[in-house]
């Protein structure tokens, strides 16, 4: 349970997952249902209960077509596709932190790469 992440996702999405009344109209409307690991109503519930890390690890967030059928149909203005997009944004923002540790850098260095580029990248991603 990660309340901070829930709040971050809700803030990025600009919607309130607590307004969900579990009607399932989003999942009823979703055209990519069979492809998705988590279905729209589950996304809302997982964001609300703070299971964001599971969502971040899931490939499912990239199978959402962003067709916005769920946004159109949601009677409570929870709009699952916005939450899914917010989790994707969160994942993108985490990319640098997850993939590059300072101690791994020397082995990857290309001798032709300008020193300044490496320094600026480190500064940008704060290690």
């Amino acid at each position: 349970m990660n309340r901070d992440l829930t709040q971050t996702v809700a803030r990025i999405a600009g919607v309130n997952p607590r307004a969900c009344m579990r009607c399932g109209k989003c999942t009823g409307a979703c055209p990519a249902y069979d492809e998705m690991e988590y279905h729209p109503h589950q996304f809302v519930s997982m964001v609300e209960t703070g299971r964001i890390d599971e969502l971040l690890r899931s490939k499912g967030i990239y199978t959402c077509l962003s067709c916005f059928a769920c946004i159109e149909r949601c009677p409570r203005q929870v709009e699952p596709a916005r939450l899914i997009e917010a989790v994707r944004v969160l994942a993108e923002r985490k990319q640098g932190a997850d993939h590059l540790r300072p101690q791994d850098i020397p082995a990857r260095l290309d001798p032709d790469m300008p020193q300044q580029a490496i320094t600026s990248a480190l500064r940008k991603y704060r290690r």
Binding site: R22, G24, C26, T27, G28, A29, C30, D34, H39, H41
Partner: peptide, 11 residues
Amino acid sequence: VQASDLLDGRQ
């Protein structure tokens, strides 16, 4: 008719 069945977890 396309609908969700939330208890069975299927569309």
